[in-house]
């Protein structure tokens, strides 16, 4: 299958760069998969899991906490706020994330802030459920 260029960068470092077959991105308005020659698209991300399928059909899963995805003719670039391989994610890690989102929601003073933080909290909670169910399955 055809491959395209994928780059995952966090402020601290370049996490992934190379040819891939498919990347599933947790967009703000729903997950989407990027294949070769995807139309130019710019999307913000919600906290979620990126699934990267490389040219040898190996998949790699990484957790990202918000950021941007930029699909251009030259490939896909994800600017992540923070990215961690899924294997390294522990229950404590998620608990910290949930706590941060709850605090933010509690501290929100304006209508706008409340809306944004509530959205974020919902996203984080959904993520927690996803991870909890994963551990039950295993």
């Amino acid at each position: 299958m055809a491959t395209f260029n994928f780059e995952l960068v966090s402020p601290e470092r370049l996490l992934f760069a190379g040819p891939v077959e498919q990347v599933v991105v947790p967009g703000a308005e729903g997950d989407f998969a990027v294949l070769k020659d995807h139309a130019p698209l710019m999307s913000s991300l919600r906290p979620g899991v990126i699934v990267v399928t490389d040219d040898k059909n190996q998949t790699q899963r990484l957790f990202v906490r918000g950021g941007f995805a930029d699909v251009s003719p030259s490939g896909l670039t994800i600017l992540a706020e923070q990215a961690v391989p899924v294997q390294e994610i522990t229950d404590e890690f998620i608990a910290v994330e949930v706590k941060a989102a709850e605090d933010e929601f509690a501290a929100a003073s304006t209508e706008d802030e409340r809306r944004v933080s509530q959205e974020r909290l919902a996203q984080v909670l959904a993520l927690r459920d996803q991870f909890l169910s994963r551990t039950h399955v295993q």
Binding site: P11, A39, L41, M42, S43, S44, F68, S72, L79
Partner: peptide
């Protein structure tokens, strides 16, 4: 170099509004 027409998700202005403060932090 960029003359391609982008699709935005969510709105273009929302993205730009999130992107600009981020750019300053970066």
């Amino acid at each position: 170099g960029a003359s391609v027409s982008y699709e935005y998700e969510p709105e273009e202005s929302d993205i730009l509004e999130a992107l600009l403060p981020r750019n300053i932090a970066v």
